[in-house]
Amino acid sequence: MSELLVIDRGGRTHRIDAKPDATLMEVLRASNLDIAAICGGMLSCGTCHVYLDLPVAGGPAEIGPAEPTEDEAALAAGLTHYAPGRSRIACQVPVAAIPALACISVAPEE
C-alpha cells in the first residue's frame, strides 16, 4: 500500500491508502472524490484531470511519475483548467510511479 495525499475541490486534504497496481484515477474514483472518469481509463474524456506537484527541490530523491505520453499531454493541454507542468490525466498515472510526498489536487470541473 502507498499513502497518497489528495486535496479535493473543496480544499480538504485526504490521506488515501492505494494499491500500487491501481491507477490514480481508480483510487480517486473509489474514494468518492467526485471524479467523473466517464471513459473509465481510455485517455479520452479528460474528466479525471488532476494536478500533480512533486516534492520541492532538496526533498528526498524520488523517481518521478512516468512522463506523460504525447497523447496524454495533448489531451490535458486542451482542457480549460490545464496547468503546464502540473496537469495529469489520472487514469494514465500508475500509483506505483507516484513519489512519496507528492501532492495530488483534483482539478476544477471543466
Binding site: A36, I38, S44, C45, T47, E109
Partner: peptide, 16 residues
C-alpha cells in the same frame, strides 16, 4: 462538469 455527459458513451467503449 460540462464534459460529464454521455454523448460519446462511456467506459471502455467511450467513442475512440
Amino acid at each position: 462538469g460540462i464534459r460529464n455527459h454521455f454523448a460519446f458513451g462511456g467506459g471502455i467503449h467511450y467513442c475512440v
